[in-house]
Simulated assay, not measured.
Amino acid sequence: MKRQKRDKLGRAHSNGYQAGLSGKSKDHCPYQCIDAKSEWLGGWREAVTDRNMGLFK
Rank of each mutant, 00 (worst) to 15 (best):
R45H: 08
W44N: 06
R45L: 13
D7N: 07
G43R: 05
F56L: 02
K8R: 02
C29Y: 06
R11F: 14
H28E: 15
L21S: 08
K2A: 12
W44Y: 05
M53C: 04
D7Q: 15
R6H: 04
A19E: 05
G16S: 15
V48C: 03
S25E: 07
C33P: 00
S14M: 10
G42N: 11
G16C: 14
W44V: 06
Q32Y: 09
Q4D: 11
G54R: 03
G16F: 11
G20K: 00
G16Y: 12
S25M: 05
G10Q: 13
A19P: 04
V48T: 11
L41D: 10
Q18C: 01
S25W: 05
G43A: 11
K5W: 05
G10C: 09
K37C: 10
S14V: 04
V48E: 12
A12V: 12
L21R: 12
K37H: 03
H28N: 14
C29L: 04
G20Y: 04
Q32H: 09
K57F: 13
K2T: 12
H28W: 14
Y31W: 11
R51Q: 04
A36R: 09
R3F: 15
K5R: 04
C29E: 01
G10D: 15
E39T: 00
A47V: 07
E39R: 01
H13P: 00
S14I: 04
L21K: 11
R3W: 15
G42T: 04
S25F: 05
C29W: 03
L21N: 06
G42M: 08
R3Y: 15
D35A: 15
A36P: 00
Y31I: 09
C29T: 00
D50E: 08
G54W: 07
